[in-house]
Write a protein that binds this DNA or RNA. Sequence first.
DNA 1: GAATGTAAGTAGGCGGTGTCAACATGTGTC
DNA 2: GACACATGTTGACACCGCCTACTTACATTC
Lengths: 196, 196
Amino acid sequence: MNTPYHHGNLREALLARAIETLSEKGVEHLSLRALARDLDVSHAAPLRHFPTKTDLLNAIAVEGVESLIGATDTAMAHSPGPARLRAMMLAYIDWAMTHAELHRVLRNPDVMRHTSETLADLLTAFADRQRAEISYAQEQGWRRNEDPAVLFLHLVSLTAGTAIVMTENVYRDPVVTPELRDKIEASIDLFLGAAK
Amino acid sequence: MNTPYHHGNLREALLARAIETLSEKGVEHLSLRALARDLDVSHAAPLRHFPTKTDLLNAIAVEGVESLIGATDTAMAHSPGPARLRAMMLAYIDWAMTHAELHRVLRNPDVMRHTSETLADLLTAFADRQRAEISYAQEQGWRRNEDPAVLFLHLVSLTAGTAIVMTENVYRDPVVTPELRDKIEASIDLFLGAAK
DNA sequence: GAATGTAAGTAGGCGGTGTCAACATGTGTC
DNA sequence: GACACATGTTGACACCGCCTACTTACATTC
């Protein structure tokens, strides 16, 4: 009865422990064998559920994107129509800051080079939502005569860029201060509020 | 005389070959031992010059940042005063697109977690230059009554974000088209030209 | 309810990796 | 010319992802 032959739900346990160690030690120090050790299981057991390490990272990325989409969804649901675009951008950045390592997995080249079908679908769906939100805002009068594709590129670049600048400390210390959140909002508003 | 005991300039050869393989196979497939094999040298020889793999990546990052700074320098030198800020941003993005893998090294978490002194210095110097350029533009009347810190955050996020969106294909296919460069410029100008 | 096919675990091995220690070989300096 | 020192080599260790063959438990079917 103790240490049964079958773990029961090794797949979920692997994912949970992986995300845990991810936020502790970073992507590059995540190993399938260490994961197996942590869960008291043979070193090859994880391969039954994730044939390759990339598959594991891919599954984690799926959970990450789902979490991200959930966060933006609730944020947008609590915002009135015209403010939804702003809520979406801020939710993305906030999510990235509170899930830094998960966010890092999402921009791991090895993951993004061979994304699973479901991950790719989630990403394009999210992108479509961003595009839809832009066109809604334009209908409301925001930057009405601007090329939507340009606005989309700008929105994506700015949100992803801000998230990255916040999570990785590219420019070391200078950026991280208490009133930082205000500056982030102000920065976003340079884009959103210009034609207000 | 053939295959002498001492390589002569192994350090430079390692860096050169590393950058070469980097653009071919990506960061995660760079190995010290493979590098040593390529240069017909024993597997531990690289450790004399780069005690750890992170040190090698760090040195590559230094070369990368120097190259990036050089590119922005010449771009800015060829632009009249008020257009320098725009030239700086576009030079950054262009450099990232033409040196995608080198750019990826610069945002490799393992590199950025323990940056060498010289790399950190280069980065802060570059950041200072961006700040200086912003304040110069503000003196010229551009977004004069805006918080410089917010402008800096926006500039950094937007440039880094655009560079990343272009080099990694986060949203798969939709973004990469021939007239893309025009859209990039238009996107940048949403920020730069707003208060013109 | 036994037989059986399959999913999920184990054991072991292969080739690869980064890193270390001990040793060898040149090079530059007094 | 002796000697310190930088730069190579060799061999080992512990780890890694991944593969194959084997074993165990579960589920389905007759």
